[in-house]
Amino acid sequence: MGSYLRQRVGSIADWRYQPVPLLAHPGLDDLVPLDLTHSSLRSVSPIHREYMQNTHVAASLTIGLADGERLWGMLVCHNMTPRIAGSERRPP
Rank of each mutant, 00 (worst) to 15 (best):
S3P: 12
Y4P: 07
L5H: 08
I12M: 09
I12F: 03
I12T: 06
A13G: 05
A13M: 03
R16C: 02
Q18R: 15
P19R: 00
V20F: 04
P21D: 15
P21A: 11
H25M: 10
P26A: 03
G27N: 13
L31Q: 14
L31W: 10
V32G: 05
L34K: 10
L34C: 03
L34N: 03
D35A: 12
L36I: 09
H38C: 10
S40M: 12
S40Q: 13
S40I: 12
S40W: 12
V44P: 01
S45M: 03
S45R: 09
S45I: 09
P46T: 00
E50S: 08
Y51I: 11
M52T: 02
N54C: 09
T55W: 06
H56F: 11
V57N: 05
A58W: 01
A59Y: 01
S60H: 09
L61H: 11
L61E: 04
I63N: 06
G64H: 06
G64D: 00
L65I: 15
L65M: 14
L65H: 09
A66D: 06
D67G: 07
E69F: 15
R70F: 07
L71W: 05
L71G: 04
L71R: 07
L71S: 05
W72I: 04
W72R: 15
L75M: 08
V76D: 11
V76G: 10
H78Q: 07
T81M: 12
I84V: 14
I84K: 09
G86S: 04
G86L: 07
R89D: 06
